[in-house]
Structures are given as C-alpha cells and as structure tokens.
Design a protein around this nucleic acid. Structure first.
Lengths: 216, 216
DNA sequence: TGCTCACAAACATACCGCTGGTATGTATTA
DNA sequence: TAATACATACCAGCGGTATGTTTGTGAGCA
C-alpha cells in the first residue's frame, strides 16, 4: 500500500482516527500504535511522513476542529446593520446550535483527564479566537455604543473564558441544575455592560446536552 | 544505603526534589531518572517503596503545597467578629502575601506547558478548596448580609476560578498592565455583590510579581 | 538490664514491555 | 528518472515490577 494517489486522503484519515482516539481515550493515553491500528493497513511511516510528531497531530486536530467554526464566526463578525452586541449574541446562539461540535464532544470524558488536549484548547482560545474575533468585536461595541465598559479587551477575554471554560461541562463537571445557575449568574454579571447572550432556550440546550452526554 | 532510620526524611526528600523538577521542567517532561539523579544516592527502589506511581508523587506534591495554605484559610474562616465578606477579604490579602508560595511559583514556566500539573491544580480547587472553604463562606455571607446574591455556590465558584485561574499569571501570561486591568474589571464585577477583595496594594503586588518572575 | 535473633522495613538491582521517534528501504506516480 | 508516499527495522528511554540485600527493631530469654 505504498504511495496513495491522493495523499490528502491519508492525511485526513490520520486526523479523523486521531480525533476519535484523543477524545475517547485522551491524548496522553493514546499511543501511536493505537492510531496505526485503526488506520486500515497504514503504518508508522505514513504518520511520520505527514506529521513531525504526535504533538503535531494534536495541533492539526484542534486547528481543524476550530476552523469551520471560526469561519462562521468571521462571517457573522463582518455582517452589516448589526451592533457588536448583536453580533456577539448571534455568535453565541450559533455556537450552541453547532451539532457537529456537539457530536464530537459528546464522546469525550472530562477534559481534566485529558490535560494536554485541554491545555492546547485554552492556548488556541488565547492565540486565535480571543485576539482575532472577540477583542476587535468588543472594541467595535464600545464605539457603536452597544457595549459599555472601560476595559473592552479584558471584558472580551473574561466572557470567552467564562463561557468556554467555566461554563464548559466537558471541563468542569456539572449537573443540569448547576449549569442553569451558572448561566443565570453569568447573565447577571454581564448585564451592566449591555450584554444579553444566553436566554432561556440556551439554558435548556445546555441542560439537555449534559443530560445527553451523561447517559451511556 | 538501605534502611534509613528516619524514612520520612527520604519521603520528604523525594517530594522536595520532585516539586523542584515538576515546576522547572514540568511534570510530563520530568522522568523518574531525573528525580533519582537528584536524590543523592537513592534509587528507583526507594521511590516505589514510598509511592505507587509517578502520578502518586504529583498528588502528594500538590497536597503538601496546598496544606499549609489551607490551614491558614481554615483559621481565618473560624475567626469571630468578622463578616464572611471580611473573612474573604482577609484570605485574599493573606494569599497575596504568601512568600512561600511566591518563591515556589516564581521558578515555574507557563502552566499551560505543564498540563498535567495544571489539571491536578484545577481538580484540587474543585474537590477541596471551593467546596470546603469558599462555598460555606459564601452561604455564611448571605446569611450575615455581607454578601448579596441569589447564587452563593456559583458566585464562590466563579470568584475562585477567576482569581486562581483567569488572573493567574502562571497560567495565562500577562504584562503588569494587563493584570491591573483584569483586577479592575474583576472589582467592578464583584462590587454589586458587596465584595471588595483586591485594593490598590494588591494590584501593585501582582504587577511586581510578574515583573519579578519574567526576568532571568 | 543486656543480649540475641528473627523478621519486617527500607531500600538496591535487574529486568520488562512499550513508547515516541529515526534511519533506511521500496514501490509508485508524475 | 526522480521525487513522492509510504513500509520496515531499529533505537534509547520511559514507567513499572519482581526480586534481592541490608539494616533497624522489638520480643524473648538469661
């Protein structure tokens, strides 16, 4: 099985298998042999032709996870006739409705037991998402008057950190009741800044997600 | 060198060396041989007599790191003639003045590059510190009227998470200017609940810590 | 009270399977 | 024909274990 005519198929196959394993077993406990065994005949040579290291695979996996989502965020960000606060609102409701991400994450155990993956996830948050999408949006919001704060950068940082980490049931395990309380407190916190990001249907969606991902 | 008269000295020696290495090199990149090399003649047999695994050492290291600090927190919590809000305030100013922790942490690189350590740190936060110290204190605050919220549990969770993770320069790298902005926003956030935890001197202390830990 | 001796405590040593990574070989396609 | 897209063979080092060795210790006896 040497020399596939379409090597990007091999590349993608490695990413698919790795994503599945990284989420179910965790990055650290997934060995290269685990990956190879699910590659359907391919061997270690194929992996190290397309990637430089195991860590390199993880980076590619996370980037691909974020990319499609980020593209949609970018589209929303450049929509016209919307205030920045409204754009942010739209982004949140889109994120919550993202079935693809939901399916991917529903198979994973607590990310605190997958520490290397978690660390890269947070890094991506701070190198890509917050500086490229959220902070510019917050500054835009201050200018158009839809967001009221003296600290737009830090507020954007805070909001993303809270919603993506603190309110993330994959990182901090929660009951449905707990997440709804957290969201209500979150709403109370950001209300003085003119932000209303998570409504009653969002709460319901989060509760359902927890209920769904806990049974097996 | 078999059979030390005082085996707890050996136990402690392993912990001291491990702490040093876990902080400087990171847990994952510290091998048992690294530890053994700094043990002064002791070998792998000594380690596996006192500990069951490498992970077991990490748990013991973190527990010992937290214990002395927690003891002080407990003392403050049971002081009388103080409102819960005042106790919390006292805890914060004590934590910031804890030279021991400061020295330990000043040698460590970004904890996002030490993911297993970070994950255990966060776990400890949620299994020990928040449920045993903070949540009871928040409920006490609601009762004595010094803290005003409908969600005492979640507010305690949030405050600890923000101050120990989001405002932790060892986890999320920051400039002195950035941390002061974050603290100012934090103060603004918790003010509606009746809390005033970090004053101007606290900001200065945090800025100095960042300046200190960055030069080498 | 002092001495002995068995025994468990406190290690040391040797070894193991597996890991991520590399060097080199080989078939295929452009 | 030569670069591409792999396969194969091999490596040092890892965490962990099984087993050996020494030494402190406390019960029992004189």
């Amino acid at each position: 099985m040497a020399r596939n005519k379409y090597p990007e198929e091999t590349y993608q196959k490695i990413l698919d298998v790795s994503l599945q394993l990284f989420m179910t077993k965790g990055y650290d406990k997934t060995s290269l042999n685990d990956i190879i065994n699910q590659l359907g005949g391919l061997t270690k040579g194929a992996i190290y032709y397309h990637f430089n290291s195991k860590e390199d695979i993880l980076i590619a996996v996370i980037n691909q996870l974020c990319n499609s989502h980020n593209a949609r965020m970018y589209e929303i960000a450049k929509e016209e006739n919307l205030t920045a606060a409204q754009k942010l609102e739209k982004m949140y409701s889109f994120s919550l409705a993202d079935d693809k991400q939901e399916k991917v994450f529903s198979i994973t155990p607590n990310l605190l037991d997958n520490p290397t993956f978690l660390a890269y996830y947070i890094k991506t948050l701070y190198t890509d998402i917050i500086p490229h999408f959220i902070v510019p949006l917050m500054k835009e919001g201050v200018e158009d008057g839809s967001i009221r704060t003296k600290y737009p950068e830090e507020l954007g940082d805070l909001i993303m950190f809270l919603s993506d980490v603190w309110m993330n049931p994959l990182i901090l395990e929660m009951t449905p009741g707990k997440i709804s309380q957290k969201i209500l407190l979150f709403n109370e916190l950001i209300e003085p800044f003119g932000l209303h990001l998570l409504d009653q249907s969002a709460i319901k969606r989060m509760e359902d997600f927890i209920r769904f991902s806990k049974r097996e």
